[in-house]
């Protein structure tokens, strides 16, 4: 696709728009900012999931587990007064660590079995969060009454308004995009794609398949935990109901619709599935929100049948997906 303006200009334009976005609404429309922040959080999540699904071709149906692990770790640490800037790396390490341990046995499994196992793991994390009342306060969520998730402090002033979080989330989204972009075009990124296309051939080309898969798995888990940690601080409340299986599926839907393995596609998927329904809520009425999942289901099937590469296909992928697979 030919763009009317060159890429750097487009990127700077988008960045500028994002920076002034809050002021387009007079700086105090809490809802517009809330949606923007939500889109940001989902973008980080989906970029993470994209590393396993999009690049490496490993379908993960329990990604919310890592979001949950990040959010709970952050909430627990923060309640005990640990600073956000220390909490964040801890969450990322915990998320990555659990992901690594999960990957050891399950990455050997074939694609659809892997999907089911990650699904089961996602539900296990949710059920454990629901039942280990001592640690997570069960369905009542964290923080407990009387406790508080401590504020994020940056250079002496504290972030407590949605607009502060908007810029914080924006910074992390940009970081996530940057990391994804560098990864995609690195040697490792090409190894991911090689595994997705043909594991056997990749192995024969000298790629250490097990190790590379594990790396992809761990990096994506870290993205998930990062998003969770930010979310916990922003909303100030974490409960197991936030991390259901359908939320994980929702993430997969965003990636599938937007375009697997393409950063722009993933961002578009998030905007279409998270942002647009919220925007349409006020114009089309609340009834529309009820129908959105129905529509997403149909769209998911339609996309996978008629445009498996997604709305914005990755350049590499659009070349590859149409070749029929021999059984």
């Amino acid at each position: 696709m030919k763009l009317p303006i060159s890429k750097p200009y487009l990127m700077s334009g988008v960045l500028l728009l994002l920076l002034v976005w809050p002021f387009l609404w007079g700086g105090d429309n809490a809802y517009a900012l809330y949606i923007a922040c939500l889109i940001g959080i989902y973008t980080i999540l989906c970029l993470g999931l994209n590393i396993t699904i999009g690049y490496t071709g490993l379908l993960d149906l329990g990604f919310m587990a890592f979001y949950a692990i990040g959010a709970y770790t952050a909430a627990i640490l923060s309640i005990h007064g640990v600073s956000f800037w220390l909490t964040l790396p801890v969450c990322v390490l915990v998320g990555g660590g659990v992901r690594y341990l999960l990957g050891l046995p399950v990455l050997k499994l074939r694609g659809d079995y892997l999907a089911i196992v990650t699904l089961a793991f996602g539900e296990i994390v949710r059920l454990v969060a629901n039942n280990t009342v001592g640690l997570t306060n069960g369905p009542k969520g964290l923080p407990r009454v009387g406790e508080k998730i401590s504020e994020i402090r940056l250079f002496g002033w504290s972030l407590n308004d949605t607009i502060h979080f908007y810029y914080l989330i924006l910074a992390f989204v940009l970081l996530a995009v940057l990391v994804s972009h560098r990864l995609e075009h690195s040697r490792l990124g090409r190894a991911f794609v090689a595994i997705r296309e043909d594991e056997l051939a990749a192995e024969l080309s000298g790629i250490h398949v097990a190790r590379v898969k594990s790396v992809a798995f761990v990096i994506s888990g870290m993205f998930g935990a990062l998003a969770g940690a930010i979310y916990a601080h922003w909303i100030g409340f974490v409960s197991p109901e936030m991390f259901t299986f359908w939320e994980s599926v929702f993430l997969v839907a965003m990636i599938v619709v937007g375009g697997m393995g393409n950063i722009g596609g993933v961002v578009l998927g998030v905007i279409l599935l998270v942002g647009v329904p919220e925007i349409l809520r006020s114009t089309l009425g609340a009834k529309f929100v009820d129908y959105r999942m129905l529509v997403f289901g149909v769209v998911m099937v339609a996309v996978i049948i008629f445009r498996p590469q997604g709305l914005i296909p990755s350049k590499r992928r659009s070349l590859e997906l149409h070749t029929p697979e021999a059984e």
Binding site: A32, G275, I279, L280, S282, T283
Partner: peptide, 8 residues
């Protein structure tokens, strides 16, 4: 859409 929705 954004303009419509949020401005409206």
């Amino acid at each position: 859409l954004a303009w419509f929705g949020l401005g409206g």
